[in-house]
Design a protein around this nucleic acid. Structure first.
Lengths: 208, 208, 208, 208
DNA sequence: GATGAATGAGCTTTCATTCAT
DNA sequence: AATGAATGAAAGCTCATTCAT
């Protein structure tokens, strides 16, 4: 009869932050649809109603996670490349950085990988995410254009194509890491991928 | 009042087939969770109850689609490679074949790409799909092992690693095709990827 | 584990009709907001989900009730008036008919009385109800115009004004009946109202 | 982190008054159920929790608004009638006064009109409002009784019936003003209603 | 006097599934 | 082979209310 309202003794320390991180993890592993407010709230230790104190809707929560994650990934990529270095070196460093990120923050990478399908499946998400997306692509494209200007590439290849190749490889690697969580196998794979980049995979010594 | 039962004039022709194909398309584009019996039934022109004449449950329907799709993809891959050819040629042909399949049957490729996450998200699906999965991987692994036996590869690279690289590239390409449905861009990308495989992307002729 | 779905032994006789009538009653007495699917379903003996078998949404259900009720009221009014009779007689008959309807189908009249505020409060309802509303007003207006053409009225009074007066009196009576459900008092009130119409309420014969 | 408590610079001036007036407006136009603490707080520029400094519950807030409004309406009516005047004159003045009030304070009249249904719909409200209601009716009844004692009326009509007629007309007019907010139409309507009271609406000069 | 954080109850709606016809 | 009617469960979200600060 009179036990409604906020209960006594409820810390509320950093609930917002915990919510954001748990949401990221769940969106990444379970997907947008399967991430229910109830499970989320339970994980964070609050009720579903309390979620709405921090985000006006599930969609807005997704967008907040997206912005957060994009920021993190962009910073990671930007920190791993240098405008002065050769592109092959930049790519190599970038792959290492992202592999490390995948180990340290699996949810971040998994979330990024999932955005495109989620956006395709949930129009509201697409609409909200679109205006702030595309940052990663722009960083890669810039790097490719710089490399072409300096003549580091086979002239048959356009900047757009190179960026697409990088996208293919990075997303392929990301996917691989999500499916097979095997550090040793991954590290061997990355070594092989680097050999591929320098053209030393097939019929190596070739012959005289 | 007395209009229950099967209506006259409803050619039961191929309902099963149409259901399977529509399910494939929807599972691929919308995902397992967002594919509801209602929408499915509407697309096919029946009621939700009628679905249960063809499949005992949604999960079983997914499994049926999976088996169908896996068969198709395996046949496509097997038809594109030859035990006698060099692996680089096989890979090249395989990439072309799968690109073609992506254009002709986008849903098939999209479905394959989505299986791993769906299985991860829905334990029932995983349980049902697991026993019949893995066929594609086995085909690739065999091809890699054959190439190694014949000395077509840099000896630093193991069969497992090579298979993983192929997985990375094929899935990366598949993902690319799903996100950017641009034939011209895709064809240019594939040309570039082939140059990558033969090591002619970075600092090309370089020397004298 | 396997007790979901439709239960055995569930008659389903006229559920649609019962739902419509119960909805009318509840919308009229409780209002749109306070009419919850749960209470409605309980009154009819089904579950809330079953409601959606008959109406796609609560708003649509309201609209269906509205159309039904408007039809009924219009027929009642039209049956009580005659193009050949004098307007004072028509009004008298109309008042009697509507008083009778109020006794026999209180929910019908109460619903009509409530429509305007509900529509004002719930924009979705307004939007859905607007295109089919206004019929009652048109019937009254026609009657008033006919009376004016025949010179049955004080020429100072326009058709619009007369219609408005009727609206005022009829809605006032309707409201009265809803608040004080006292047959004797109502019947005496109606007698007095008829005296008012013929100008025999105040300072009666007055003169000598 | 340490910004709780009453913020500086928030002139607590008249918050109570603004809250009461906004509540009246919202209860009148949106209804009791649709008037949420959140919207109310936003309109007034405070938080929902702050409301509870002024009223212990939503019901109590409604009751406070009711008392305020009843006081205002009763004073308006009492100021418009005189024990010495003839009832027809009193009625005429009362109608004018209330019409004016409807224009100046639409929410006040609208609120009064809505009380009976709200009370019917929300038992708590009924319980709280009942003991202080009925004042308006008593004023009207007294006026009617006085008129009868003085022989100003057709003896066929009882005081109760006359009061009921007044209720019907006044509430009908109130409702009309709420639905059609058209000053010109309303003023014409009121003129016609006055003609009705003196019996000059139908078959006017009648004949010689 | 006012806030931010939180709650339990309840709302409309959707879903996969069942069953008699 | 297919339908219409119905279900229990659960989803996203809102509400009036509470409490420490």
């Amino acid at each position: 009869m009179s036990k409604l309202g906020r209960p006594t003794n409820c810390a509320g320390v950093d609930t917002a932050q915990r919510l954001l991180i748990e949401a990221r993890r769940s969106f990444a592993t379970q997907g947008y649809a399967a991430t229910t407010n109830k499970k989320l709230a339970q994980s964070v230790g609050i009720t579903t109603a309390a979620i709405y104190h921090y985000f006006p809707s599930k969609t807005e929560m997704y967008v907040a996670v997206f912005a957060d994650v994009q920021e993190l990934v962009c910073k990671t990529i930007e920190a791993s490349i240098s405008p002065d270095a050769e592109i092959s070196e930049n790519i190599s460093n970038m792959v290492d950085s992202l592999a490390l990120l995948t180990v340290r923050e699996p949810a971040v990478v998994a979330f990024v990988m999932s955005v495109s399908s989620e956006a395709h499946r949930h129009p509201e998400v697409l609409k909200a995410v679109l205006p702030v997306s595309g940052r990663i692509g722009r960083i890669l494209l810039q790097m490719c254009e710089r490399a072409i200007e300096r003549g580091e590439l086979n002239p048959k290849i356009s900047a757009q194509s190179l960026e697409d190749m990088l996208t293919v490889i990075l997303s392929g690697l990301g996917r691989f890491n999500m499916v097979y969580k095997d550090a040793r196998r991954t590290s061997e794979l990355i070594k092989s991928m680097k050999l591929l980049l320098v053209g030393e995979v097939f019929r190596v010594p070739s012959n005289a």
